[in-house]
Every structure is written in structure tokens, then in C-alpha cells.
């Protein structure tokens, strides 16, 4: 038998060769010190490879990763409770401050009532103004859309049907190219 090829050595070490070939190799190894050394070296090499230490995973790796995949969501009920608690604490602190400064409780309640009423009045006025602005904005947008449709209709009456089809195809193609280009860049 000829000296072993590296492939044969690896297959022999991994016990992947048929029995007759394995027997032939064993016999050859008894006679050939060079092949015996080659097998020994590869055996040590594989042993060293398979005992390479694992890389250390940080203890908080999975927690950090889960935080990235599922960002923290605070339940609505918990948010309402937190806001209510803050408001109560602030109110209690204000009462204590006023009482400790020697003011009458009735006066405090009256001034608080005034403040709440004023706040509600201002909020209502502000809401009315915002609604009016929104209405104006919608009116302007609808007028703009109407104008665009009118312009398109007059353009369509000037251009022939073939030219209209070409223009539609070109616009769709441009839109698709831009869309996929942006998507690819992202």
C-alpha cells in the first residue's frame, strides 16, 4: 500500500472508511513510521481543536437582546395609576404648605375651585380655536385636491389616449423604482 493521503487519514480518524480499507491502513501504519507520525499529528490536532474553549456569553446578553426586540411597554392602567398618585402627592404637599403658612382651609378650597374653573374655561377656548384651525386646514386641502383633479382633467382632454397610457406607465415605473431604491437603501 502507498503512503496515506491526508483525506484518507482524516476519514480513518473519523472512522468513516469501510472495514477492508481500515484494515489495510492499520497494516500499513504498522510498517510505515512516517504515516504513523502523520496520523498521530492529526490526532493531536483534532483533539486540540475539539477542546478549544467556548467564548464567554455576557450574563445579561439575552436580557439586553430581548429589550431590543421587545421594547418596554407600560400598561395603560399602570400609567393612569402613576399619574393619579403624582397628582395626589402634589395636592397633599400644597395643602400642607398652605396650612403650615397659617392660611384658612376654606380660603384654600375657594382659590383651588377658582383655579380649576379658570383652567377648564381656558381649555374650552383653546379647544374651540384648535377645532376652527383644523376645519380651515381640511377645507384648504380639499380645495387643493379639487384643483389637482381639475388640472388633470384638462390635461387629459389635451392628450390622446395612447399618450395618456404611456404617461401612466412611466409614472408607475418611476414610482416603483423610487420605492424599491429607497427600500434597498434602508
Amino acid at each position: 500500500m502507498k503512503c496515506l493521503h491526508s483525506n484518507q487519514i482524516y476519514l480513518y480518524l473519523e472512522k468513516e472508511l469501510p472495514v477492508p480499507e481500515t484494515t489495510l491502513i492499520r497494516d500499513h501504519l504498522k510498517e510505515c513510521p512516517l504515516c504513523r507520525k502523520a496520523v498521530k499529528e492529526r490526532r493531536v490536532f483534532i483533539k486540540a481543536t475539539e477542546s478549544l474553549p467556548s467564548l464567554k456569553v455576557p450574563p445579561d446578553f439575552s436580557r439586553q437582546l430581548m429589550g431590543q426586540i421587545f421594547p418596554l411597554k407600560i400598561p395603560v392602567r399602570a400609567s393612569i395609576l402613576a399619574v393619579t398618585a403624582c397628582f395626589s402627592v402634589m395636592l397633599t404637599a400644597l395643602f400642607i404648605l398652605f396650612l403650615s403658612s397659617g392660611q384658612n382651609l376654606i380660603n384654600i378650597l375657594i382659590s383651588l375651585n377658582h383655579s380649576v374653573l379658570n383652567f377648564l374655561k381656558n381649555t374650552l377656548v383653546l379647544s374651540a380655536k384648535i377645532s376652527k384651525l383644523a376645519f380651515l386646514l381640511i377645507k384648504t386641502i380639499s380645495q387643493c385636491i379639487q384643483q389637482i383633479f381639475n388640472d388633470l382633467a384638462s390635461l387629459a382632454s389635451i392628450l390622446g389616449p395612447e399618450l395618456q397610457i404611456i404617461l401612466i406607465i412611466l409614472s408607475l415605473a418611476t414610482f416603483t423604482i423610487i420605492y424599491y431604491g429607497l427600500k434597498k437603501n434602508c
Partner: peptide
């Protein structure tokens, strides 16, 4: 690569 038969020198192993 063809098998490199080991020399008689001491190998790194």
C-alpha cells in the same frame, strides 16, 4: 494540498 509527510525533526505537536 498533497500530504506532507512529516520529517524526522520534532514537530510542533
Amino acid at each position: 494540498p498533497p500530504i506532507q509527510l512529516p520529517s524526522q525533526e520534532t514537530s510542533i505537536y
